[in-house]
Design a protein around this nucleic acid. Structure first.
Lengths: 349, 349
DNA sequence: CTGAAAGCGCTTACAG
DNA sequence: CTGAAAGCGCTTACAG
């Protein structure tokens, strides 16, 4: 059987309280006892049960991460970042693939509560706010890549999507493009809205129009991007540049262009968003707005830890609506990565 | 505060034992009491603490998954499969990105033990067998995509890598290729060895030689594939076909060929392995040996569950070396997916 | 500096 | 059919 704190105590001829203290480096223990006990723990290969200590000490050192799909390269990278930073700080992470389905989200949050995770990071759409609101006061929560919902007490870490959209526009404008179109994800997602908004904003400033039918909403699959791009490319006044709200959609656009015999970047420029591994692997490689995934994930974890500390220091208020600090919102800078999918439009060459 | 079993019991005017029984559907409880208690649990939004129940009932309903890198598309897909099947069966999964580093692996296994996960799925290299051996008797373990180590009591689910290698060879041979080369991952990894072995075997059967310097070991990064491919393509008798042990390496090969002005598939055929999303996204799309990831993940979870049951039914022997059933080894079929990176060699056209 | 005791939220024989 | 009590492996005041 695995050794317990009792085994150690008996072996060392002390009480379990004493052993507990050396484990947690609390209280004063004489140097000799301490080292003797440590030696015994080593010898018996003793590892304190997180389960038991969670039942009293309250910490499970486990975080929950909700994302739509782990196999989507962007979220896979987010997951890695969260997991890495979490591990550095002593936390494990439970992944939850929600598929953006509300029932699943509810199930997961409920499971995470039952398992008493210390915090939750949400990178998925949450249709029903109320659930989140209920949850928020009990488990520290941070939204990653999505805006927090009104009435929710959650911190937020996002990329500066709007600026990213602006940068994409700026790049294309600089190359001389005037007729542009957009492949967007569902505009229900805040980040998509912001990217589009930034893009359009910059165009507006230059007095360039972005007709409504030049903005297409897609799911986040390659196939959707391809279909919508096909239609866009069949327009009488074919756009010379496409801004795609993620790499997957951009790949769809690349495929549609190829099918139509339209060469990239000579006849069509494509800018994508996310800069996942996919962007570097296509032909031509995609010019893309990079999200600082690493930092996104790390920041989310750090915000959570800060929240833990704050709640501990003001335990009385921990259950009131006013607990914790004010929810923070952190927007991280994106970066334009220029590859080979963009160039000046032909007419201008 | 969250409601506990005591709150429910008090509210219902029964003992906590009774409440516990209705939670677990154990023992006989009168229909009225049962429904009354259930109603109260609903009303108080009661959710039993997994932590507390784990301390007695022994199940945490949590699995650990060790993989080298979650952001690697192949492992991301494995993770999704494991997570999905796990969720269906009532288990959460903690992801652990090991980066193939031994210290990390040890840390993780130790953490997972402390958290009393019910089982561990290992998809990463494990340098030091002894650790695994020590672990195996205490936590049910299954290897996924890697062979179990000698002396280890772990089940194994793999793709039939050898057959996959054979199929790749067969495909290339059928197209008429004779001069071939291989981009492999480290041959310390059993799956890489098997792929190469199957490939070479089939060539041997046709009396075709695969010179030693035509087999290059790479890490699993695009850049390595590119560098090694560059060398291969500079050989005086340049190979007409390349078998790459994963998609990443194949992408490197594609890039090297492009740099060298070698057109694919006209002048060089490329077959990859894994068939991740990357294979469908390159230009040209890659002919690839698909691993049945979905099934791989699901099977791993199922083997674990079976092991749980077996250990429960023979608790006496659970701590002896002979516990559980014999370790199983399941090899799943791969599938050749033909895309556009392979064709007959030029000389033969 | 050290220990006895209560308690965390459950489950599980064992009585009744 | 129902409940009292012990126990799971820890932590935390509180005494000494």
């Amino acid at each position: 059987m695995k050794a317990t704190i009792y085994d150690i105590a008996k072996e060392a001829g002390v009480s379990i309280a004493t052993v507990s203290k050396v484990i947690n480096a609390k209280g004063k223990i004489s140097q000799e006892k301490r080292s003797e006990i440590i030696a015994i723990m080593d010898r018996l290969n003793y590892q304190p049960s997180v389960i038991a200590s969670a039942l009293t000490g309250k910490h499970t050192y486990t975080l929950g991460l909700l994302i739509p799909d782990i196999a989507n390269p962007f979220f896979a990278e987010v997951a890695r970042a969260v997991e890495q930073r979490g591990h550095e700080l002593g936390y494990s992470v439970i992944i939850c693939g929600t598929d953006n389905r509300n029932e699943r989200i509810e199930q997961y949050i409920s499971v995470l509560r039952q398992k008493q995770v210390d915090g939750i990071i949400i990178g998925t759409g949450v249709g029903d706010t109320s659930m989140l609101r209920d949850n928020a006061w009990s488990i520290p929560t941070v939204m990653i890549g999505r805006e927090a919902y009104a009435g929710t007490i959650a911190h937020t870490v996002v990329s500066d999507d709007r600026q990213g959209g602006r940068d994409a526009a700026e790049h294309l404008l600089g190359l001389g493009h005037r007729r542009m179109a957009v492949l967007s994800e569902s505009l229900e997602i805040s980040s998509s809205r912001e990217r589009l908004r930034g893009f359009r904003e910059r165009l507006d400033e230059q007095g360039i129009e972005l007709p409504l039918d030049h903005v297409r909403q897609c799911k986040y699959r390659v196939e959707d991007g391809r279909r919508q791009a096909r239609e866009l490319l069949a327009l009488p006044e074919r756009p010379t540049a496409l801004f795609c709200c993620n790499d997957l959609l951009a790949i769809g656009a690349l495929q549609a262009a190829k099918e139509a015999g339209i060469s990239i970047p000579q006849e069509l420029s494509v800018v994508s968003f996310d800069n996942t591994i996919l962007a570097s692997v296509t032909d031509p490689p995609l010019t893309s707005i990079a999200q600082p995934v690493e930092k996104l994930g790390a920041t989310a974890v750090e915000l959570l830890l800060r929240e833990f500390r704050e709640r501990q220091s003001q335990p009385q208020r921990a259950q009131t609506a006013a607990q914790g600090a004010q929810p923070q919102r952190i927007a991280l800078q994106t970066e334009l990565i220029i590859r080979s999918s963009t160039a000046a439009p032909r007419s201008r060459r």
